[in-house]
Amino acid sequence: MLDPQSPTPLYHQLAERLAAAIRAGEFAPGARIPSEPKLAAQYGIGRPTVRQALDSLVRQGLLSRRRGSGTYVREAPKEIDLFSLDGTAASFRKRGLAMASRLLGPTTRRTITTDERHPLAGREVFSLTRLTRGEELPVLLEELDLDAGLFPGLDRLDLTGQSLSVLAAERFFLRPCGGRQNFSIDYLGGERGRLLEVTPETAILRVERLLHFPQREAGFFSRLYCRTDQFVFSQTLGGFEHA
Rank of each mutant, 00 (worst) to 15 (best):
L120T: 07
P200T: 07
I80Y: 11
V166W: 13
L62H: 06
L174V: 02
V166A: 13
S127F: 11
R194L: 09
Q13E: 05
L54T: 03
T114Y: 11
L157C: 08
R32E: 09
T160E: 12
R192G: 00
A168R: 03
R74E: 11
L174P: 01
Q181L: 12
Q162M: 11
L154Y: 02
G149Q: 08
Y187M: 05
L57M: 06
S222D: 06
S6I: 03
P214W: 03
D158F: 06
S127K: 10
R175D: 14
R66H: 12
E116A: 13
L140T: 02
Y72W: 11
S6Q: 01
A168P: 01
R180H: 12
F126G: 00
L120N: 02
S84T: 05
L205P: 05
L174S: 03
P119C: 05
L140Q: 01
R17N: 11
A203D: 14
R194T: 07
E136P: 08
E79V: 15
P37V: 07
G122M: 02
L195Y: 00
S234Y: 15
A218Y: 10
E208M: 09
E116L: 11
A203L: 07
G189Y: 04
V166P: 08
A98D: 14
E170K: 10
P214E: 08
E116D: 09
